[in-house]
């Protein structure tokens, strides 16, 4: 195995160089940019500063980030609340049907998410199908103004990211050992108690994984808030996009992007730790 092979060198070299050049260097560049100063002509000036990070803590921007995180969080919670019973019901159907039902969840998510956002927009419009339906059934008397609100952004995010919640939930619920539920019932636990003390802890990895898979991408989807939200319903993705393409303040945009990546990395690390902890508990 130690013989020198041109093919081996070329293979590792090519793929390694690609990753270094298109992944490592660009990320290092953004990290470096976040510590530099803004320059009108050349995007950045080579002067070290922490000003960009200080500006992120400015109440004005913190509010923007807070609103963005709140919309993403609500979307995650709605996905969980809708997705958990759904995944549970799916995991309890007979195997043949189960796979077909699962495929039906995945199919809409093969379509470009921009098109799905546009579809949601036609649905939510004042003259759209949803308002017509609600008026027709007499639930409302006047068309609701749904579009261009924070609620619309949340609905859009839920619609686009729902499969990312259902799939990990389905994976853990399908593996759930039903004997444990019987044992819990035999030992006198009610349905509610079994759910809270047995089912939820055992499916926690799926809940956390689904939560991350919805929450993290939701922060960046600038076109969802562009198409569905009002002027104030910005996501962090819109903010970064504006800094790079409109305000031309690269260092500030880079600092926001680094901060967002760090928060995501921390959440992922927390996830891996919690998984390990849950795994250990099961063994004991």
């Amino acid at each position: 195995m130690t013989e020198k092979s041109l093919f081996k060198t070329a293979t590792i070299g090519l793929t390694g160089a690609w990753l270094g050049f298109f992944v490592l260097i660009p990320n290092v560049m953004i990290l470096a940019t976040s510590f530099l100063q803004r320059d009108e002509a050349a995007f950045v000036r080579l002067d070290f500063t922490l000003e960009n990070y200080r500006r992120i803590l400015d109440p004005v921007y913190l509010q923007v980030f807070g609103h963005s995180a709140a919309m993403a969080l609500v979307a995650t919670m709605v996905c969980l609340a809708l997705g958990y019973p759904f995944a549970y019901a799916l995991a309890r159907t007979r195997p043949g049907l189960r796979h077909l039902l699962l495929l039906l969840v995945i199919i809409p998510f093969w379509t470009n998410s921009l098109i799905r956002t546009y579809a949601i927009r036609s649905l939510l419009a004042t003259q759209g199908v949803l308002n017509k339906l609600l008026l027709f059934t007499g639930i409302i008397d006047e068309p609701l103004r749904l579009l261009y609100t924070g609620t619309a952004v949340t609905i859009g995010l839920v619609y686009i990211l729902f499969p990312f919640m259902v799939l990990p939930l389905f994976a853990v619920i399908e593996k759930l050992d039903t004997r444990l539920l019987e044992a819990s019932a035999d030992l006198g636990a009610g349905r509610f108690q079994t759910f809270v003390r047995v089912i939820i802890p055992l499916t926690m990895p799926g809940i956390i994984a689904g939560g991350l898979l919805v929450f993290l991408p939701a922060l960046g989807m600038f076109y969802v808030s562009d198409l569905l939200g009002g002027a104030k319903d910005l996501l962090i993705g819109n903010f970064i996009k504006n800094q790079f393409l409109d305000a031309r303040d690269w260092p500030f945009g880079a600092a926001a992007s680094v901060t967002m990546t760090l928060i995501m990395a921390l959440m992922l690390i927390a996830y891996f730790f919690s998984i390990r902890k849950i795994g250990k508990k099961e063994i004991r």
């Binding site: 660009p26 990320n27 953004i30 922060l219 960046g220 970064i240 990546t261 992922l268």
Partner: peptide, 23 residues
């Protein structure tokens, strides 16, 4: 090598987009 592949999959699209733009 493995780490960088993981970075591509995990980093949000927008972060990858601006880093490539900068490059």
């Amino acid at each position: 090598f493995e780490g960088l592949l993981f970075v591509i999959m995990m980093s949000p699209d927008i972060v990858m987009a601006i880093s490539l733009l900068a490059l």
